[in-house]
């Protein structure tokens, strides 16, 4: 594969399994849930990688694993080729300065009791990078970067005095104040109105251009991913089913789930040049009896009743950059 040899983030067969806690009184033993199943990804320096999937697809879990809010149950995460899967202590703290996250709900991700200045300057205090006066300068600079002007007017405000879009911009300011290499943006606009979302997209796009920040952009909307991302990965039930350049995925989707995602967009958002794929079954089929099967088997109109029900498809390379986990692809 002709990729640059040094991706910022490399994920190698990362898995996460949620095992239900056995508690007294729960009569039926619930099964462990596989939130992520051996996902492998490279994210290049300076790109915005879009991770697209429906609810419960494991996309948020992947983001949380990458910023080490949760522990993985297998596989490795490399940051600039250093294995960071099991780091702790000082190494973890150094890692925290380089990897940041923007959360989905700006109404919940800011501490209601802290001022905007306190919120944004906190990472600087934690990592003891600067004196007080440089802290003020830095906070003012990042707040201006995310579109607050004059920034000083917002220093002593509290989150509840701001709109959702403004709060999310504060959250972005906090994430970039330490000049991180890599930021996970977990559906940063799903709680916002269209006009505010657009502004957030522009800010992220500017950050990438001007400061070479690398992003993992998690979203449920292929339209948003199309607008913002260089490459897209599509995830379904914890399995990465397709990845490739954004244009390629939108114009020539290979996996039936990607096609279904494209079909699901309201007609106003569709590309008039694209056809309707119609890959989704009206009502889901039963799970096959075997232990190996394609994760999308139950909903796939194109599934082969023998092969798809008895084997788990691996990623097939359709071109140097585009691959999909479907027997029918290519």
């Amino acid at each position: 594969m002709n990729r640059s040899a040094h991706p910022v983030v490399r994920i190698d067969r990362l898995s996460k399994i949620y095992r239900p806690k056995r508690t007294l009184g729960s009569s039926h033993s619930s099964h462990p849930v596989i939130a992520l199943n051996q996902v492998s990804l490279d994210i290049e320096r300076g790109e915005i990688f879009g991770l697209v999937g429906g609810s419960g697809s494991g996309k948020t879990t992947l983001g949380r694993l990458l910023v080490k809010l949760e522990k993985s149950d297998g596989g490795k995460i490399y940051l600039s080729e250093n294995d960071t899967t099991r780091i702790r202590g000082q190494a973890l703290k150094a890692f925290r300065a380089k990897v940041q996250m923007i959360f989905q709900d700006p109404y919940q991700s800011l501490n209601p009791q802290l001022t905007i200045f306190d919120t944004v300057s906190e990472p600087l205090i934690i990592h003891k990078t600067s004196s007080r006066s440089t802290r003020i300068k830095k906070v003012r600079k990042v707040l201006t970067t995310v579109g607050f002007s004059p920034a000083e007017d917002y220093f002593s405000r509290y989150p509840h005095e701001l709109s959702g879009g403004q709060r999310q911009r504060v959250a972005i300011a906090r994430a970039i104040v330490l000049n991180p290499e890599f930021i996970v943006a977990d559906e940063p606009t799903s709680m916002l109105d269209a006009t505010n979302s657009f502004q957030i997209f522009n800010i992220l796009s500017d950050l990438r251009k001007k400061q070479r920040v690398t992003f993992l952009f998690i979203t449920h909307s292929l339209a948003a991913a199309n607008f913002l991302c260089d490459r897209i990965g599509v995830i379904y039930h914890g399995n990465l089913v397709e990845k490739g350049p954004a244009r390629q995925i939108i114009r020539h989707p290979a996996h039936p789930y990607t096609k279904a995602l494209l079909d699901a967009l309201p007609s106003y958002c569709q590309d008039p040049a694209c056809t309707f794929h119609n890959t989704l079954l009206e009502s889901p089929r039963d799970l096959p009896g075997s232990s190996h099967y394609c994760p999308f088997f139950t909903l796939c109109r194109e599934a082969d009743p023998y092969q798809c029900a008895s084997e788990t498809p691996n990623m097939i390379h359709l071109s140097a950059t585009h691959s999909a986990a479907c027997f029918k692809a290519g």
Binding site: F148, Q199, Y268, D271
Partner: peptide, 24 residues
Amino acid sequence: RMLLASNLTLSDHSFDMPTVHQSR
């Protein structure tokens, strides 16, 4: 117009919308 411009679609129309910086 602003609402329509900020509504993302799959087609490649040019995204020209100045960002709103005024306080809401």
